[in-house]
Computed example of a mutant assay.
Amino acid sequence: MPPEHGVVITLKEVYDEMRELISEVRQLTSEYKNSKQVDEDHERRIRSLERWMYAIPASVFLAIASIVVALVNKG
């Protein structure tokens, strides 16, 4: 017997919605884990770039110093 002023929600509908919710939570959890891995990979790449960038000035300085020493010893 349907209610006069309302809606009937069956246990099957509740069950189906719960299954869908569980599926979405699993998907979001998986995406979060992948996002965390991407963030960690991104952080590692940034650190690598920073090390490379700081190494360039030192190598340029050593190259210039070597050229100066070679010119001084030649002349």
Score class of each variant (00 low, 15 high):
residue 66 S to G: 15
residue 75 G to S: 07
residue 52 W to E: 03
residue 41 D to E: 15
residue 49 L to F: 11
residue 40 E to Q: 10
residue 9 I to A: 05
residue 72 V to P: 09
residue 13 E to A: 09
residue 32 Y to T: 05
residue 39 D to E: 08
residue 49 L to Q: 02
residue 55 A to R: 00
residue 14 V to R: 03
residue 64 I to F: 10
residue 62 L to I: 09
residue 36 K to C: 09
residue 72 V to G: 11
residue 34 N to D: 11
residue 52 W to R: 04
residue 24 E to N: 10
residue 16 D to Q: 11
residue 38 V to L: 12
residue 34 N to C: 06
residue 31 E to S: 05
residue 17 E to L: 11
residue 30 S to E: 11
residue 13 E to F: 01
residue 73 N to E: 14
residue 19 R to T: 14
residue 46 I to L: 12
residue 5 H to T: 10
residue 46 I to T: 06
residue 49 L to R: 06
residue 41 D to T: 07
residue 33 K to R: 05
residue 15 Y to L: 08
residue 29 T to R: 06
residue 61 F to E: 13
residue 18 M to Y: 15
residue 44 R to A: 15
residue 41 D to N: 15
residue 66 S to C: 14
residue 35 S to I: 00
residue 5 H to R: 07
residue 2 P to A: 06
residue 63 A to D: 05
residue 36 K to W: 07
residue 14 V to F: 05
residue 51 R to E: 11
residue 59 S to N: 09
residue 14 V to D: 03
residue 11 L to T: 11
residue 25 V to N: 10
residue 45 R to N: 10
residue 56 I to S: 01
residue 15 Y to A: 12
residue 38 V to S: 09
residue 63 A to Y: 03
residue 72 V to R: 15
residue 13 E to K: 08
residue 75 G to R: 10
residue 11 L to I: 13
residue 6 G to C: 10
residue 8 V to M: 08
residue 32 Y to F: 00
residue 64 I to N: 05
residue 71 L to W: 13
residue 24 E to D: 13
residue 13 E to L: 02
residue 38 V to R: 13
residue 38 V to C: 02
residue 13 E to H: 03
residue 11 L to C: 12
residue 2 P to T: 02
residue 66 S to L: 15
residue 3 P to G: 07
residue 29 T to S: 12
residue 68 V to N: 04
residue 51 R to I: 03
residue 59 S to P: 00
residue 73 N to W: 09
residue 23 S to F: 09
residue 4 E to F: 13
residue 44 R to G: 00
residue 44 R to K: 15
residue 62 L to H: 09
residue 63 A to L: 14
residue 18 M to S: 12
residue 40 E to I: 13
residue 60 V to H: 04
residue 48 S to W: 01
residue 1 M to N: 02
residue 75 G to H: 10
residue 28 L to H: 15
residue 74 K to R: 12
residue 40 E to P: 01
residue 15 Y to W: 05
residue 15 Y to K: 12
residue 16 D to G: 00
residue 59 S to K: 05
residue 10 T to C: 00
residue 33 K to F: 05
residue 9 I to W: 01
residue 55 A to Q: 06
residue 19 R to S: 09
residue 30 S to R: 10
residue 13 E to V: 02
residue 2 P to Q: 00
residue 3 P to Y: 02
residue 53 M to Q: 11
residue 66 S to Q: 04
residue 50 E to L: 08
residue 66 S to F: 14
residue 7 V to P: 00
residue 30 S to W: 04
residue 51 R to W: 01
residue 3 P to W: 04
residue 39 D to P: 02
residue 70 A to P: 01
residue 74 K to Y: 14
residue 74 K to A: 12
residue 45 R to M: 11
residue 59 S to Q: 07
